[in-house]
């Protein structure tokens, strides 16, 4: 039963994450944190952090991480399968259409309408992650909030590798925690 739930949940992630990369984040959050409570918001944010630091698509990373926690190695395999089954079907259909008509224009037009929605969904997930870090709605974590602002400004004004920014944030937070406490 748990395997079926894992499969169906990650199948939805695979089927509806349109637009690559970050588009999967709000979907994984919705399945894993809200629908099934397999992870807390904090654990989910850790997962996004880990996924950002390791190679591989975030959906596959998440399927493995959550699958193992809920159903061991078989859980990981089943969740990952769930993730790629929609791709197998939809990509095959699109490839068939492409080789028949040699044009991907129709799909491009549809994507243009989906993109603004996906962008907003990613932004909303980002704000929820931020409010988890900074403790909005509870006691504000000033160290987290200041680090976020510094990281955000660095991202916007320089071309420093995002992974480096993340690691730097981790180290600074640890040092602040040891010194200030």
């Amino acid at each position: 039963m748990i395997y079926l739930q894992l499969f169906l949940s990650f199948m939805q992630v695979g089927l509806f994450s349109i637009g690559g990369g970050y588009a999967a984040i709000p979907l994984i959050e919705s399945q894993v944190v809200n629908n099934h409570a397999w992870l807390t918001m904090s654990e989910f944010t850790d997962l996004v952090t880990i996924a950002e630091m390791t190679p591989g698509p975030i959906a596959i990373n998440s399927a493995t991480f959550v699958g193992i926690r809920i159903g061991g190695i078989p859980g990981a395999v089943i969740a990952t399968l769930g993730c790629i089954v929609p791709s197998l079907i939809v990509v095959s259909v699109l490839a068939f259409i492409y080789y028949k008509y040699r044009s991907a224009d129709f799909m491009k037009r549809i994507l243009k309408v989906i993109r603004p929605v996906v962008v907003s969904l990613i932004a909303a997930a980002g704000i929820r992650i931020l409010s988890n870090v900074a403790g909005f709605g509870g006691s504000i974590d000033w160290k987290g909030l200041i680090l976020f602002s510094a990281a955000f400004v660095t991202m916007k004004t320089t071309k420093v590798n995002p992974v480096l920014i993340m690691v730097a944030c981790g180290v600074v937070y640890l040092l602040l925690g040891i010194i200030i406490r």
Binding site: S120, L147, F148, S149, C169, G170, V171, Y173
Partner: peptide, 28 residues
């Protein structure tokens, strides 16, 4: 200590995601 490092990195990840979504929104 690990929890503190992770917490700090979460702040970085929030910055990355919001920065990327702003870039995407500007493009749209």
């Amino acid at each position: 200590y690990v929890a503190m490092v992770l917490k700090g990195m979460q702040a970085g990840v929030a910055a990355i995601i919001l920065s990327v979504s702003i870039d995407l929104a500007v493009k749209v």
